[in-house]
Design a protein around this nucleic acid. Structure first.
Lengths: 245, 245
DNA sequence: CCAGTCCCTTGATCTGAGTCAAGGATCAAC
DNA sequence: GTTGATCCTTGACTCAGATCAAGGGACTGG
């Protein structure tokens, strides 16, 4: 089996880039091409409500979406943060299990569920690529569980900043020189929902990290990280910073 | 695509039962048969250490295994609870990301990784079945994240008991009559690691649920549930009790 | 029978994060 | 410029769950 994760620079839709490989039949590309379509959402808009019928699967092209779960009394927990190239939806299940919300303005590349599923059973590479992506998400969810269950508020904040910095770097293949600059794409409340905290605690802990020189703030959303190792230490992660070998 | 989750009653190995379907070629069965082998572990024994080379993938035949993550200072979080028929290991990655420990005496059905991966790329149904199982695990992980991030200690305990009761029922296809009896297969400390609590808090909350008549205890490990709806209410779950439509 | 080990329970106290409350900064609309 | 909305910060106080500590079964091996 050759490497299916090779990116195909043939447009702006991550499904094509990531789920289908240039070295497999190009038919797959044109077939996917035929059934795809785009949807745009404004920041704050809901993409799907939990319990709704799921008519499509798709992936994030630009912007950020969040997967959240809400209890009857309003307590909310984010359970997925979807950045560009992340996949949304579950082939095989008709009903959405979580709310999907646009955290920023969002563009998604969608496929109607039925034809996508048909394609999936016809072309094994799609299932294999999807399996790989799902296993990555599961690993991320498990790191997240350690964070939620065992980390202190300060460690949670440091972890979130380093997670965003890492995904940012992976996305932009950024040069590592000088203090890392990261834009936090979430409000304090969304961060709180991500971390299992209240927004007040998030605010306090960000202030504390700033006071202690671990980070610098320009405005509310732009963080610079003078010393990444220091931040990772504060996050309580193993030294590899979650980079799996 | 026909339903691959049909169980084939042809032995005691869940991979054969669940990853391969009777209506697909029987060749798959015999091929898997050739490369499988069994491993047994005593309660408390470690199956794999995080960071170790993974030589195999496999599934739990009997007993319970747990996936855990430990921080340098010893804080521990369980991130997976593996009951019979659950899959362990990740095709495509050579290094284990989490500790796997036998919580009870354990038998696993294993496949050496290399031949399993070869089979997987040759027979698409395996990847498709594995994708289905992984998506289920991801959903479970996301429910678990809500528990860790937002539930109170009492809700966590009630949730754990109802999760075990549900999986128990699914496994034994038990008749639902009279008060449900469930055996807790975990020590108080393991429950604490599952729930992101301390063992003292686990003990106190179990006592409280007992005092309030939500559960009855015989010994430390045997719980009966006189009223399942009451328990689910205490768990703070939506009324469906996590049963996805 | 006793000693040692696990595993569990319960009490007393402490503390990190939640809650409640007030106010500041930024931005858009009028 | 004023009004209102949204988002963020900070302070004072509270409380759920952690920590520290003691002791109670149940089982094993001598």
């Amino acid at each position: 089996m050759h490497d299916h994760s090779v990116h195909v620079q043939c447009g702006d839709c991550p499904i094509r880039h990531r789920a289908v490989c240039a070295r497999c039949e190009t038919d797959e590309l044109s077939q996917l091409e035929q059934i795809k379509y785009y949807r745009s959402f404004q920041a704050g808009q809901t993409v799907i409500w939990s319990g709704d019928r799921m008519e499509f699967v798709g992936s994030v092209v630009s912007g950020i979406a969040s997967l959240t779960q809400t209890m009857e009394d309003g307590r909310r927990q984010m359970v997925g943060l979807l950045l560009p190239s992340d996949f949304v939806g579950r082939p095989g299940r008709p009903i959405a299990a979580f709310d999907v919300t646009a955290s920023t303005d969002l563009v998604m590349c969608c496929f109607r569920k039925k034809p996508f599923e048909e394609m999936m059973s016809a072309t094994p590479h799609i299932a294999q690529r999807l399996l790989e992506m799902t296993l990555d998400e599961l690993d991320a969810a498990r790191e997240w569980m350690l964070l939620l269950g065992r980390k202190t508020a300060r460690e949670k904040i440091a972890s979130l900043i380093s997670i965003i910095a890492r995904r940012d770097a992976a996305l932009h293949a950024r040069k590592r020189s000088g203090p890392l600059a990261v834009n936090l794409p979430l409000t304090r409340e969304e961060m709180a929902d991500y971390l299992g905290l209240t927004l007040e605690t998030v605010s306090r802990q960000i202030s504390a990290l700033k006071r202690d020189g671990v980070i610098t703030l320009e405005g509310n959303r732009n963080v610079s990280i003078p010393d990444l190792d220091r931040l990772l230490e504060e996050a309580g992660d193993d030294s590899d910073g979650g980079m799996l070998v």
